[in-house]
Design a binder for these strands. Structure first.
Lengths: 188, 188
DNA sequence: AGTAAAATTTGACCTAAGTCAAAGAAGTTA
DNA sequence: TAACTTCTTTGACTTAGGTCAAATTTTACT
């Protein structure tokens, strides 16, 4: 889940004292090694992970292929959205691509805290809104851009992905075969 | 925005008296004739439209082609999400495909009401969550299904679309050319 | 009913991107 | 530094789905 960072920071900064205190104590830091799974398919996603350092990805398996649905960098919120929201088994895996540090928020605890501190519900709404807008953008790209346009667009918007993530994952993230992506890169 | 209807109905049914009263008085009914625009590109989407009767669609223009992004039936919530949420000019049009009746909720009024009745923020969150889940599903379909699989999937999940909406719109909604869609249908 | 307009189908051809297979590069580990 | 493993590139070939153009069919309007 990608954040419109500044607006979210502002919102958090402006929380009342109580909400703010709660918010800061709710999410202990945890570390994962490269390759570790934060979530596996069929498990219920009971935590959200705010990436503090390192890279992770979310993906699912379809006909033996693995398809990357999201790439996480610093300040992104890693979560299998449907599983987390409906507390049902996840279709997706979340895996650390490097050693990572994350702030972990428990679903149930957050639900309770939202009841006590309504400002947190507003924060939740805000995060969800930005995620939906990001999804709309992804759909727009699939509808209107060719394979190489999608790659160029990614290169422009999130050069860090191209710099640090293996091409296989970038290819499936863009809905392109690895070979085609390689050829696209060769031409630039 | 498609609703997981029952959960939303339940939620509204269980609102406290004050929230419920507000909710019911907030959205006057309005009528549009076939072909009318509920929203045009570049206008800010200041209203959300709960479809009471009839059919509408949301679309944008790209390189002269029109691409349908959503089809609305009874109980769907028609809104250009990014424009509504950020109150910025819309990339999309919303148009009545038949004569329609809608319950119209004003953005600014709803924002105010949410401050007074926090339950409404929870409702807003719930609607946004379901919209995000629906968007994830759409992305999944584009990633994993072929053109004819997408059509068959639509036929199964939302037969009313195929029954009542012109094929041109269905084609662009599925990311298929009109001709290819016609051939897919011929083969079934 | 008769005509225009819109929607859908069909045909011929084209092309972006996929698949399969093999060769090179680049990292990792002993 | 050799030997794996993983990642990326290149080549040869295939194919799903696009485009353009011309029928049909259906719908809407006088």
């Amino acid at each position: 889940m990608h954040s419109y960072l500044q607006k979210i920071r502002d919102f958090i900064t402006n929380l009342d004292v109580d909400s703010s205190k709660i918010f800061n104590n709710m999410s202990p830091i945890q570390h994962f090694a490269k390759g570790d799974f934060l979530l596996k398919q069929d498990d219920v996603c009971r935590k959200s992970y705010w990436i503090i350092r390192g890279i992770a990805r979310k993906y699912y398996l379809h006909d033996g292929k693995d398809i990357t649905t999201e790439l996480y960098f610093e300040d992104d919120l890693a979560v299998s959205f449907e599983s987390y929201t409906l507390q049902k088994p996840s279709k997706e895996y979340i895996q650390a691509l490097t050693d990572i540090s994350v702030a972990v928020t428990d679903y149930t605890l957050f639900q309770k805290m939202k009841q006590q501190f309504p400002k947190l519900t507003e924060l939740d709404l805000m995060l969800t809104e930005y995620y939906a807008i990001w999804l709309e953008e992804r759909l727009f790209e699939f509808h209107t851009l060719s394979a190489s346009e999608r790659y160029l667009n990614l290169l422009e918007k999130q050069p860090q992905i191209v710099q640090f993530v293996p091409l296989t994952h970038i290819a499936s993230y863009l809905g392109i075969s690895l070979e085609t992506l390689s050829r696209i890169r060769a031409k630039i």
